[in-house]
Each structure stands twice: as structure tokens, then as C-alpha cells.
Design a binder for these strands. Structure first.
Lengths: 157, 157
DNA sequence: TTAAAATTGACAGGTACCTGTCAATTTTGA
DNA sequence: TCAAAATTGACAGGTACCTGTCAATTTTAA
């Protein structure tokens, strides 16, 4: 077994802290979305769909998720009246997602709460340190992405 | 709607980067665990149970999860022969989790792969920047935890 | 000492992801 | 041009979380 180095221990700390922060951020997102009858996942889908009528597959690509996951979320949003599916005259396979008035209203409300929340947090941290942290996390992200898993390639779905 | 400040935008970047990194880390964890027939979640449970016979509820508290979630994972691990439940003579409600030989073997193998992986990554980053990043994330974590949601208190379960 | 409170495991059911497969419908490139 | 490839939605089923509830069993505090 490899002996732990200082850097190894520090990187392990980073991993644990990312997990912890991720959980807290998801929780906060749900609290911001809940008053409008949404969850984090549904808010995100509404947010993407807000930029114009899009297909479920397009939303999935934008969010880095599977079509099938977004479909499920979109179906729930449609069931609850936040969005509607519209046939696409140019592609007989596709149905496009369009926000309803209720969907737009809910999205605006969540976005407003979100802005207030983020600004409140941002005001309590040092901007230079914040920027450095974002840069470091981006480095870590590209580090994790850099060695593309040998063997299999990108899947098409 | 609140106008976005520099710090607000930067904090938003931080959030997005944490989400991205979390996804990549989970994926990497699954890749480390898979060769031994485990997933990230099952590896974590085995790891906690390795420190001695523990109840499901104790594991859940250690991991910051619900009893019920850990129970499900533990049942799956027992079904696959990685651990066994043993009656506790001191508490007739409780059954304690004990790793089987196969469970210990799998855990050791995953931990060895994990150590190699972490050290490989850690060697490619600057230690000072890494430490600063961990500290900054810890600040963010405590920032998110500091304002305890008014109204309801800790739940007992 | 004993009644209230907490803990534990178990069960039911929900959310948000995932994979794999299928048929219908574009899009493509030889 | 037209067959192969890709895309899309739909369906089935799996993982890992969650909440709420229940009965059995400790633990506690009056």
C-alpha cells in the first residue's frame, strides 16, 4: 500500500470537502426552490427551457444528464402545470418544451431568491480568495477529465 | 431583481464548479470500486464497518445519511456476501455489521487503488494552493452551515 | 421505579439520477 | 439517391438517496 504524502492527504481533504459542500449546496437549492413548488432538479430544467422552446434531449445535453432523466423531470413539471409540450412542425419526432405562465412565474421567484442568497454569501468572503478557489477547482476538474478512460470512447447517447 | 456583483458572479462560478467536480469525483470513485464488485456507496459503508462491528444506525450517523439509506446498502452488501449481520448480546434491537473475508479483501483492494489514484493526482498540483483551496472550501462550508434555518430545530431521526 | 423519550430495524413510498432497448424519424455521406 | 447512422421519445428496470410510520427495545429523568 502506498504511504500517504502531505499532498495526498490534502487532496483527500479536498475531496471530502467537495462532497460536503455539494450536499449543502443542493440542500440550499431545494430550500430556494421549495416555496415555488419546485426542487433543484426541476428548477434547473425550467431554467434551461426558459431560453426558448427546446427538446428534452437538448436540455439533457445542456445539463450534462441523460435524456431519460430529464424526460422524467419534464413529465413531472408538465403534470404540475409548469410547462407544456408543443409539437415541432419541423421534426415529427420532437416535442418542444415551453414554460407556462405558472412556470415562468415560479422560475422568476426562485431566481430572485437565489440572487439574494448568493449575493448575501458572496458579500461575506474575500473576492481574491474566491477567484483563486474557483481557479483551483477548475484545475482539479480538468485534472480529473484529462486522462480520458482508456479503452472505450465517447458513447453516442 | 438584485443586480449581480463581481463577488456574486464568482460565487456562482464556485457553486457550478463544485457540482461539476462532485460528479467527476463520484464517477472516479465508482471506477475505483467497480473492479472489486462495489460502488462508491457500498465502499463507504464497508469502510466504516471495517473499524469494528457497528450498527447500521451508527454507520448512518458517521456518514451523515439516514438509517434507512444505509440499511438498504448494507442489505445489498450482505446479499452479495461482503458483510454479515451479527446479533448484539447487549441490545436485543440491534444487529451489528461485520465484514466477511470477501468484504475485507474487496475493501483492501479498493483502498489500494484509491491511494494510488489520489497520490497520482496530488503529485500534479501545487501543495500550497491545494491547502489554500481546502481552507477556502471549509470557509464556504461553515458559511453555509452558520445560519441555522430558523423555525425548526434538529430532528431526532 | 417507572413512565416518557429516544433508538433501532423494518416497511412503504417518493425523487433524481442511471443503463439498456425499441420504433419512428431525421440527417449523413458514399 | 438512398441506405447507414444518429437522434428522439418512450418504456422497463436499477441505484442511492430521501421522508414517514410502526413496533420492539433501550435509555432517561422525574
Amino acid at each position: 500500500m502506498a504511504r500517504w504524502t502531505e499532498a495526498g492527504r490534502s487532496f483527500t481533504d479536498l475531496i471530502l470537502e467537495v462532497f460536503r459542500l455539494n450536499g449543502l449546496l443542493l440542500e440550499a437549492g431545494d430550500h430556494l426552490a421549495a416555496p415555488s413548488g419546485l426542487t433543484s432538479a426541476r428548477w434547473q430544467v425550467l431554467g434551461v427551457a426558459d431560453h426558448g422552446p427546446v427538446t428534452v434531449a437538448q436540455v439533457a445535453r445542456t445539463m450534462g444528464l441523460r435524456r431519460q432523466s430529464v424526460q422524467q423531470t419534464a413529465d413531472a413539471l408538465a403534470r404540475d402545470g409548469f410547462l407544456a409540450f408543443v409539437d415541432d412542425p419541423d421534426d415529427r419526432r420532437a416535442r418542444r418544451i415551453a414554460l407556462t405562465a405558472a412556470g415562468r412565474r415560479a422560475l422568476r421567484a426562485v431566481e430572485a431568491r437565489h440572487a439574494v442568497w448568493v449575493e448575501g454569501l458572496a458579500a461575506r468572503v474575500d473576492l481574491r480568495a474566491l477567484r483563486a478557489t474557483v481557479a483551483a477547482l477548475r484545475d482539479a476538474t480538468s485534472l480529473l477529465q484529462s486522462p480520458p478512460p482508456r479503452g472505450r470512447r465517447r458513447r453516442k447517447d
